[in-house]
Design a protein around this nucleic acid. Sequence first.
DNA 1: ATGAAAGCGCTAACAT
DNA 2: ATGTTAGCGCTTTCAT
Lengths: 336, 336
Amino acid sequence: MPRVGIREVAALADVSMGTVSHFLNHPTRVSAEKAKRIQEAIEKLGFVRNNAGRQLRLGRSSTVAYIVPDVSNPFFATIAEGVERRAAQAGLSVFLANSGGDRAREDSYLALFEEQGVRGMLVASHDPIEDRLAAARTRGTPSVLVGRRANSAAQPSISIDDVSGGYLAARHLIEIGCRRIAFVGGPLGIQQIADRLQGASNAVRESGTAMLEIIDIEHRIISVGHKVGAELSGRPAEHRPDGIFAVNDLLGIGLVQTLVGNGVRVPEDIAVVGYDDIEYAENSLVPLTSVRPPHEDFGIAAVDLLLTVIGDAPLPAETQLVFAPDLVVRRSTTRG
Amino acid sequence: MPRVGIREVAALADVSMGTVSHFLNHPTRVSAEKAKRIQEAIEKLGFVRNNAGRQLRLGRSSTVAYIVPDVSNPFFATIAEGVERRAAQAGLSVFLANSGGDRAREDSYLALFEEQGVRGMLVASHDPIEDRLAAARTRGTPSVLVGRRANSAAQPSISIDDVSGGYLAARHLIEIGCRRIAFVGGPLGIQQIADRLQGASNAVRESGTAMLEIIDIEHRIISVGHKVGAELSGRPAEHRPDGIFAVNDLLGIGLVQTLVGNGVRVPEDIAVVGYDDIEYAENSLVPLTSVRPPHEDFGIAAVDLLLTVIGDAPLPAETQLVFAPDLVVRRSTTRG
DNA sequence: ATGAAAGCGCTAACAT
DNA sequence: ATGTTAGCGCTTTCAT
């Protein structure tokens, strides 16, 4: 099979290469008759425009990259929806990459996308990564740090205000009458987690009457929620918290399952608040009250920020965007 | 900022462009001294190799695409892990794309990746897509259909034997004593769903004593499980099934939650089997017995198949690979 | 409206 | 071991 390029199309349609190119890029400038001949030739030959040649000539691509630690995490996946939609509107395609939380893979994708000549990168990462993004930026590929506020003023970022999220969760528990509040989460070395605790702590202090117990855990998954739930149900009622702030929904779901299974009533005995508002939160045994970060809007805003950084949109005063989360109240905190 | 290419590096290192290229592609052929000068120049200038030029010259890229309807679906996400690892071993990078189950987006990604000149594509889709893959193939981009057996012999595919999965599920229910079995799933227009029903039906017929009720539903999500669970708990006990085969785990989880919430015991009154063995199945209220398709292995096998199709690996006799699922037995079907 | 031609950055074949 | 050079496929002036 001989490779078919613009040249073969031109030959078959009996026009020049330039006309074929015009047809491809500025269809209006080509006469109807030749357009038809060219179109037929393209279909007959199965011509596919070679992006390498195009990009080389144009000097730039029309793609952006979105790198995440875990595509299957509903938080990142939902953002991806917004990212793709907005990028498409701007005429850009999105290359998704899954780093698996592995630095080496993260690095290799960063390098790959730089070589690909993407217009910009959206990067979510648990690692310290600003240095590498700064380096990429000096080499010509700008980026937006997603999910975490950047330390450097030069690094655009878009993030959730986790302090305010933690505050919302704890204040809600206090408002429905909880006085012994447990924070279930960790590791505190992760900024987002520490921020949520900080916010919760602020709310508790502000109340003047409530107390905060911190249950530090390693992994934020359902089975750990089970474990902690078992421990709590085993305590005499007067030593149990009456409200739990689980630092994510998976923990919250696990906690509720085990508490209820052991005869502890949710929310009557213990009210529970989760974080992230994943789909399962709404559909769990006892629908879970949860702190909801913006989702699709967040992806849209991320792309918009990247576009301004790239220079395709006017520069805003501020390139460190912080979004405020909401609280979605469900049965797990609805008493009476 | 002047764009820096191989030419600028060569000038600064005081060598020829060819030597820089050699350094990049065949480092051993360059003397230590010049290698050092080149390396320094690269770092000093922040040189990034332009892939468009490279690819244009080489006539091919070293990437493959993996297109899925929903990246956040744990089934595809887990496969992606295997795909990426195996591709990396073969020196290939993976571009992930999320079609959102939307045909237009699917098409635009197919076209994009063809233009990008990927070596091949792994495509999972709920739509009829073989025609388009065939067209892409004739134009030079081969593909492997993932998750569904291809109709055309010319289209390589890798899939799960859903008939056998459905059979496993139903036979297990029968073996633990169920006689009135309900199949909860739909739409039957989806091949995978129809196959699972087929398998279940085979097992029931084979038993000679069991009966099968089909509850046809539209969406395979938790909330639909709730709805069906409510309906079933409302029936007089003698008209309820004593075993349920839920066509996926989300349905199964929803069913179990509502049944148990309404005082129907699982598995004593009704045993429940799910499908897919997602993470939540193991950690649900009553750990859910589930049909488990191969996961990471599946991704590895998919890449291997694509490599053979591309021609980087020896051609096997068969390009329609079918994997057999397992059954993972948990509490939801463990009586006594 | 159409055609001719230059050149984007890179690699490898060939020459030294 | 290193340099020289042709040309990959395309887009876009610039003519006509």
